[in-house]
Design a protein around this nucleic acid. Structure first.
Lengths: 253, 253
DNA sequence: GATAACTATTGATCTGTGTCAGAATAAGCT
DNA sequence: AGCTTATTCTGACACAGATCAATAGTTATC
């Protein structure tokens, strides 16, 4: 799949997929020398697109790769002992899925496409080997994993301490930031997940998500048209996320 | 406890602290060759004990080390924009604190001792360097971080989907497992954190934690005496964590 | 060893969000 | 297109857990 040659040729558009990838500044290759990007490039396999609803991997399957999302969106989720789905994350382009499988050697979650989605498969044993030769790549992997840990901890705070309004506002602003980082509009975007999936992720009932979104629209914080979202009043949304509603319950200062 | 020396010497007890440490089977050195353990050992600094309430590091401080708990317990927490404390984790002996600081170069949380606590300081730049020379050490670090990611995701599920009973039961069984892993009793242990800290961590009010614990005792699931906990009915507790209370709300199978 | 200062427990009440039910809308499918 | 199925919205009601309040127990301090 991946055609990689460093020497100048006509088809330079084909020489290095990573180098030409618009996401390379966000994904793993950041801060790598050109020759190192090429080496990384050689171990990466571009897979054929997943259609909506298809699995990238399933909970319990043997772990052997992490995946970088190139386009589309994925969700990861657990199936509880009773068959209930529990969404643990959404993944947008440039983001890495599957890191939680390293420890046990099996994916502890399933990953499913929310829309047509393409990914780069990065076989982990190769990546690990390559990271021994390229210190900055190793550092980059540590950083990505560390980032995931602190992001997840922010999510824990959100789930444990925030009310429905704060949860939904946080969720929308978080998506906004991720779109912005990739050069898309921070204020206007399309939700690839359903209200039900948002609720599942945020620990809310579908009805609550729907009501909060409707109320946000009524109060002119956002404008909604089905899955299209426009954030109208950023300051007010940020206020909602930051402090708000805690004004009375300062437990320890 | 475990004395492992390849070369016979008198002072082998002093040559390598890690080799003699009863936690080495759980901490980073696992699966390292003896000579590699010695190299790791050389970069580690044993610090003087922290007294209850003292900080190991503070949110916002420059990151330069991760720490392995040797004895005692730590909590990590955020201070929100309004001064409220939000506990993100408790750390027992053999567990690594500070991994979330790698990404941004600053600790995103504070770490504070819940009782007299000793730690091993592991300067991260040295660890990273050493990991280039010892592939199994690098692998070990990846595993530890990956484990943290999947643990945190379990915690997200707990916070988002479980009710008070399930939260408290999960918390107690989780502690029980961690004690067991270190060779202590799985059924009898001492909580080093207050009810308030448990509630803060689990997203519950102090009063709720207290009530749930009292009820568990009344139903003979556990026996409580202040901070001393004895888990009496493991099967029932596990049932509480596993399925329970979801029997009516199967959303998608 | 007495006093102060937290920490835990228990009861009464209030409220945010879940649950149930039904209608409106959108998305797939033949 | 037209039918089916899934998703979203809206209202009515219920309840788990928060909050308020007051007591009892524990730990720290001088």
């Amino acid at each position: 799949m991946s055609l990689t040659h460093t020497h100048s040729r006509f088809n330079s558009t084909l020489t290095s997929q990573c180098q030409n990838c618009s996401l390379s500044a966000l994904c793993l290759p950041i801060a790598l020398a050109d020759e190192d990007i090429n080496r990384l490039d050689q171990i990466i396999e571009r897979k054929k697109p997943l259609k909506k609803g298809e699995f990238l991997f399933r909970q319990g399957e043997a772990f052997d790769s992490v995946y970088a999302v190139r386009s589309g969106t994925l969700k990861t989720f657990n199936i509880t002992s009773f068959g209930e789905e529990q969404i643990t994350g959404f993944y947008c382009p440039s983001e890495l899925v599957g890191l939680s499988g390293i420890d046990s050697g099996a994916y502890p979650v399933s990953a499913k496409a929310l829309e047509t989605t393409t990914v780069c498969e990065i076989p982990f044993s190769h990546l690990e080997e390559l990271s021994s030769q390229i210190p900055s790549l190793k550092h980059q992997i540590f950083k990505v994993m560390s980032r995931k840990i602190s992001d997840d901890q922010q999510m824990m705070v959100l789930l444990g301490k925030k009310n429905a309004d704060e949860k939904v506002a946080s969720f929308l602003l978080n998506l906004s930031n991720r779109f912005k980082k990739r050069g898309y509009s921070a204020s206007s975007f399309r939700l690839s997940m359903s209200r039900g999936e948002i609720g599942n992720y945020l620990g809310l009932a579908v009805e609550t998500v729907s009501r909060v979104i409707t109320r946000f629209q009524k109060n002119e914080l956002i404008h909604v048209d089905g899955k299209e979202i426009e954030i109208v009043d950023f300051p007010e949304m940020q206020k909602l996320v930051g402090v708000a509603s805690d004004c009375g319950k300062i437990s320890q200062i």
